[in-house]
């Protein structure tokens, strides 16, 4: 037990890596996924198919396989990424594919009547998006997306397998030194729990807040 308390500063530095990576993944995947999500809803047909293919393929394989592919596989094609970068790229790709689906689902859940009404009063595509569709769609998008942020924090635990010293890897290293696994696993679980429970509570709160939107 005392080893667990003694190791807290080391675990916190691991937590910093976990949170940095989660933040990078969330921000980058939001930008990419938002763009591709709009492309898959409103883009020309070939673009739609390409993005659909991308998102279905990526979501169809285990995230662990994707991480190994990027880290161990890509060097053969000349792209040699250090472990932190490789892990981040793999997680961004995965999260982007999910975000595409959140965006598509949110935008398509807005009733067609809204678009038709906006067209009939003469709004252009940009105006329809800015004043009619997106302000409503964002409320549908937020709850699953915030839940997805909690998934991103959990997903980063897998990058410990590439030797990135995140929280999971920090826990493993202390266990390797002390041979006393249980207190550290419980402590690690408690840290993950605190962060993710906060995020999922926030998601529920936002969902309740926006539940008034019906179509």
């Amino acid at each position: 037990m005392s080893t667990a308390i003694y190791s807290i500063p080391f675990l916190l530095s691991g937590l910093a890596v976990t949170l940095t990576m989660a933040l990078l993944v969330v921000v980058l995947s939001l930008l990419l996924g938002g763009t591709l999500g709009m492309a898959v809803t409103y883009g020309p047909r070939p673009l739609r198919w390409t993005v659909r293919l991308f998102s279905d393929v990526v979501r169809g394989i285990p995230i662990l396989v994707l991480i190994f592919f990027v880290f161990y596989g890509l060097p053969a094609t000349g792209i040699n990424l250090p472990n932190f970068a490789a892990a981040t790229v793999a997680l961004v790709v995965y999260k982007t594919a999910q975000t595409v689906e959140y965006v598509r689902g949110a935008v398509q859940s807005i009733h067609d009547g809204q678009t038709e009404a906006a067209k009939s009063i003469g709004l252009t595509f940009e105006q329809r998006m800015a004043y009619v569709i997106l302000p409503q769609a964002i409320r549908r998008f937020l709850p699953p997306w915030i839940n997805g942020v909690a998934d991103a924090v959990k997903g980063t635990a897998l990058v410990s397998l590439l030797g990135v010293t995140d929280l999971m890897h920090a826990v493993q290293q202390v266990v390797g030194r002390t041979y006393d696994p249980m207190p550290l696993y419980v402590l690690g679980a408690a840290i993950y729990f605190t962060i993710n429970y906060g995020l999922s509570s926030l998601s529920r709160h936002v969902e309740g807040r926006y539940a008034y939107i019906r179509d």
Binding site: K154, G155, A157, M168, M182, A189, Y192
Partner: peptide, 23 residues
């Protein structure tokens, strides 16, 4: 439900395989 859902699966796997048998 909340405990399982908010902890990474890989940590649970380690905890059950390496941790539980020690206590």
């Amino acid at each position: 439900v909340e405990t399982i859902r908010n902890v990474p699966l890989i940590l649970l796997v380690y905890l059950v395989f390496y941790g539980l048998p020690t206590i």
